[in-house]
């Protein structure tokens, strides 16, 4: 059994925050190419608020995600804030009352998460949004459940899928979000929201 216990989830989320902090310039630059250049700041503001909310001893596996979700929903800077808030909320709900995240719980969270984001943002795969990283990660986790892959390895597979999805956005002309206003001008660089999703899964291990 190598399911992720609350403490491990907390570490994961903390590593994610650090990664985003490190890459704030690059993310901002990506949003400048395709949007309005506030993505990095929006992320960092929400995440720094999340840090203040973490309990050092999370009650269940979902608790760190719950803090993360609330921080995004409370901050809501731009489009990404509430969407990430609702995405992480599915992770919180999946882990609620559980002593650890199994591969199956992670797959549930990712499936529900991407469904919520797609519904709220009316975005499909291929629209050059965070969904382009969320969807393949969810698929990878679903497959991992089928294949009985343990959680840690399942997350590495999800990270690979998310990164590939994020990379694919470099060659997509956006149809949703602010990037849709700039069209071809954004080609050649990935969507910042999708990159953030890849960074999230990559922070797991």
């Amino acid at each position: 059994m190598n399911d992720l216990e609350p403490q491990a989830v907390l570490s994961w989320v903390e590593r994610f925050i650090t990664r985003i902090d490190d890459q704030v310039q690059e993310l901002t630059e990506l949003d400048r190419r395709s949007g309005d250049g506030d993505f990095g700041t929006n992320m960092v503001t929400a995440l720094s608020r999340a840090k203040a909310k973490f309990s050092p001893a999370p009650a269940d596996a979902g608790a760190p995600f719950s803090s993360l979700s609330t921080a995004f929903l409370e901050h809501s800077g731009g489009t990404s804030g509430p969407l990430f808030g609702m995405w992480f909320r599915e992770f919180a709900l999946a882990g609620e009352g559980s002593p650890a995240f199994s591969t199956a719980l992670l797959a549930d969270a990712a499936r529900n998460g991407v469904a919520t984001v797609r519904r709220l943002g009316s975005a499909s795969v291929g629209d050059r949004t965070m969904v382009d990283a969320m969807a393949p990660a969810a698929d990878a986790l679903a497959e991992a459940v089928e294949d009985d892959v343990p959680a840690a390895r399942a997350l590495r597979l999800a990270a690979e899928a998310a990164r590939a999805g994020a990379d694919s956005t470099s060659s997509i002309i956006a149809r949703r979000g602010r990037a849709s206003y700039v069209g071809e001008a954004a080609l050649g660089a990935p969507d910042p929201g999708a990159v953030a999703v890849a960074l999230f899964f990559e922070s797991a291990g």
Binding site: L73, G78, T79, P82, L83, G85, M86, R89, L120, G121
Partner: peptide
């Protein structure tokens, strides 16, 4: 407006 609709929708859901 996109932002208002998004946040009111989310508020309704939660």
């Amino acid at each position: 407006y996109t932002g208002d609709v998004l946040n009111f929708t989310i508020a309704a859901e939660i």
